[in-house]
Amino acid sequence: MAVQIEFVSSKTLRRMTTKQRLDLVLQSVKKNTILVLEEPLTMDEERQLIRETMKIITKSFPGIEISSLSSEEQDLRSSVIRLLGGKTSGLTVVGPANLVKEMKKDPNKLRVLTK
């Protein structure tokens, strides 16, 4: 199976509401696309994504694999950068579970294994 990977820019994601972000993720993974989001999903968005994913699981769509690398920086500099609309670091990778075998992560590195 050919693997299609889509990258979504931070700029695009910041214009979206949580619902729009989740819709984008779910529509893409259902089309067998692996998404790389330049702006990581929040913990709350991940929770909502898991919940919404569970509602659409079928025999042919078993769910998602997701992993995020996010900045742990909570210092004043990072807060100011974020406040001004800038980006410090982080990303989320999400793909369909029938295509992505595993996502391995250590704090600084993310590895995606496809089937």
């Binding site: 898991i50 994913t53 699981i57 025999k59 078993p62 769910g63 998602i64 997701i66 579970a97 029938n98």
Partner: peptide, 9 residues
């Protein structure tokens, strides 16, 4: 248990 995927197989 919480999971991101549930595959009947």
């Amino acid at each position: 248990g919480i999971a991101t995927k549930v595959d009947y197989r």
